[in-house]
């Protein structure tokens, strides 16, 4: 009898372990980020640029942020939106964000996102009339990528650069 009981417990555990795969198929996207900077190193008498982890940076230096995503779920993830506010104390470097999916920027702390060329705002000019302006990259407050679909097991990464003020 003792032996039978143990077998039964094992069977229940097996069923429980198998259940999520069947009953609750879902995407599971995780994201990680690394901050790096480029340094010049001399290798075999030649100066080459190398990326190293940016633990400490000098004002004026660039930080390269690489955002890596992975769908470890068993179903495709849809409308994957990666949002990253430009860190305080830094300025976005124009053209540095990877052109993955649908890339958009915000100048109002993420309330609205637009394509760079559409990023305009209005100011009252000298004439008293409202004048339309295009935001310069260092006014960007947020960067956002929208990726339509990341399949189960799919991975990818996007990146952008900022300059430390």
């Amino acid at each position: 009898m003792q032996k039978n009981k143990k077998l039964a417990t094992a069977a229940v555990a097996l069923i429980l372990a198998a259940m999520p795969l069947v009953a609750w198929a879902q995407p599971k996207v995780t994201i990680t980020m690394k901050a790096e900077k480029e340094v010049s190193v001399t290798a075999k008498g030649k100066q080459v640029k190398k990326r190293v982890a940016a633990k400490g940076v000098q004002p004026g230096e660039e930080i390269i942020y690489t955002l890596s995503y992975q769908n470890s779920g068993n179903e495709a993830a849809k409308d994957v939106v990666i949002s990253d506010p430009i860190p305080a104390g830094t300025a976005y470097i124009p053209g540095s964000a990877s052109e993955t999916g649908d890339l958009a920027f915000s100048i109002d702390k993420g309330k609205t996102f637009k394509k760079p060329t559409l990023l305009t705002y209005e100011l009252k000019g000298n004439t008293g009339k409202m004048e339309k302006k295009v935001a310069s990259p260092d006014e960007y407050t947020d960067v956002r990528w929208t990726i339509p679909q990341v399949p189960a097991g799919g991975t990818g990464s996007v990146s952008f650069k900022v300059k430390v003020k």
Binding site: I31, M33, V57, V81, I82, D84
Partner: peptide, 12 residues
């Protein structure tokens, strides 16, 4: 310099 990234997504 703190950088926080968020990923939002939907299921199938």
């Amino acid at each position: 310099i703190l950088n926080v990234v968020t990923v939002d997504y939907k299921d199938a």
